[in-house]
């Protein structure tokens, strides 16, 4: 039995040495917001944070995250009624289409803004090009990141 800390909560999970974090999060912890897209770190749909750093959970062994803080899409809102500034910007820009990639997009965007609160278009491209959106909503994702960045300047909380 392995113990994982996800969104501040402890989960006892049964993971073999090679089992990716993605499947543990989805199937054993029931947190299905993190998505399976490719299984080889090509699409970014499975992005979660480990100690604040974005990782592709489909190629990260679950046991390697033991003792660390794992954050998924379900864990970024301040509380049930207060969305994260990035989530709020996503709604304001009406960003998602099918929505399947968006958990990963948002997790990558949050990580970017944590590092760089006012990224340029080029910096956004560099940080976000590992996340595929087959509905092609890249311009809205970019606008939403700029919007979140602007909100950050005024609210100063992320």
């Amino acid at each position: 039995m392995t113990s994982l800390t996800i969104n501040g909560k402890e989960y006892g999970v049964d993971a073999s040495a090679d089992m990716p974090l993605l499947w543990v999060i989805r199937e054993q912890c029931g947190l299905t917001g993190t998505k399976f897209g490719c299984g080889i770190a090509q699409c970014g749909a499975c992005t979660v944070h480990i100690d604040g750093q974005p990782v592709r959970s489909c190629v990260t062994p679950a046991i390697s995250a033991e003792g660390k803080n794992i954050t998924t899409i379900e864990g970024i809102a301040l509380d049930k009624n207060t969305l994260h500034i990035v989530q709020q910007a996503w709604i304001e820009e009406q960003t998602p289409q099918c929505g399947y990639c968006q958990s990963g997009q948002i997790m990558s965007a949050v990580a970017l803004l944590n590092e760089n609160p006012s990224p340029t278009d080029e910096e956004i491209d560099a940080a976000m090009s590992g996340n595929i959106c087959r509905c092609g909503m890249y311009s809205r994702i970019k606008s939403a990141i700029h919007r979140a960045s602007a909100s950050l300047q005024t609210s100063n909380t992320l």
């Binding site: 399976f36 989530q87 996503w90 709604i91 960003t95 399947y100």
Partner: peptide, 23 residues
């Protein structure tokens, strides 16, 4: 007019349920 879409809020919180997410 462009009314906010019904399906968007759940798609930014991870709550939206796709076929893949059925339990």
């Amino acid at each position: 007019t462009s009314q906010p879409r019904f399906d968007i809020p759940a798609k930014v919180t991870g709550e939206a349920k796709f076929g893949m997410d059925v339990q």
